Simulated scan of single mutants.
Amino acid sequence: MRGPQLVTFGATEPHQMRSPYWCPISTEEVVHLVGGMVAEDRGERYVPPQPEPEPEPRFEAIALWRLARPRPFREECLSGGRP
């Protein structure tokens, strides 16, 4: 089993990268790099958990009389017959 490796990329031109350069890195260096312990048992056989499915919208049938009544446009401010 290979240990952790650090990969670095060099820049050749603006927004261009060179081929990667791989070098071994110790467990202590990994802990310092990420700021905490890292599980090293996630090898090639690791299978990430499946993401939760998106919830499906559920619609409920209700009686038509329960719906709000539409109001005419500007009913409050235009009523009263002011000249």
Rank of each mutant, 00 (worst) to 15 (best):
R2E: 11
R2I: 09
R2Q: 10
G3R: 02
P4Y: 01
P4V: 03
Q5R: 14
Q5F: 11
L6T: 06
V7T: 13
V7L: 12
V7S: 11
T8E: 11
T8Y: 05
G10T: 14
G10K: 13
G10Q: 13
T12F: 05
T12E: 09
P14N: 08
H15I: 09
Q16Y: 14
Q16A: 15
R18W: 06
P20S: 06
P20C: 07
C23M: 15
P24A: 05
P24C: 03
I25S: 00
I25Y: 03
I25N: 00
S26D: 06
T27E: 12
T27H: 09
T27F: 07
E28K: 10
E29F: 01
E29M: 03
V30P: 00
V31F: 10
H32K: 15
L33K: 11
V34M: 12
V34P: 01
G35A: 05
G36E: 06
G36R: 10
G36K: 08
M37G: 13
V38L: 03
V38F: 01
V38T: 02
A39T: 15
E40Y: 14
D41I: 02
R42E: 03
G43K: 02
R45H: 15
R45K: 14
Y46Q: 05
P48K: 01
P48N: 04
P49F: 03
P49T: 01
P51L: 05
E52Q: 12
E52K: 09
P53C: 00
P53W: 04
E54S: 12
P55T: 05
P55I: 04
R58T: 09
E60F: 11
E60Q: 11
I62Y: 00
A63R: 09
A63E: 08
W65R: 09
W65T: 03
R69Y: 06
P70D: 03
P70Q: 00
P70L: 04
R71H: 11
R71Y: 07
R71M: 08
P72E: 02
P72Q: 01
F73Y: 12
R74I: 00
R74E: 08
E75W: 10
E75Y: 08
E75L: 10
E75T: 07
E75V: 10
E76P: 01
C77V: 15
C77A: 15
C77W: 11
L78D: 13
S79P: 01
S79V: 06
G80V: 03
G81N: 00
P83N: 11
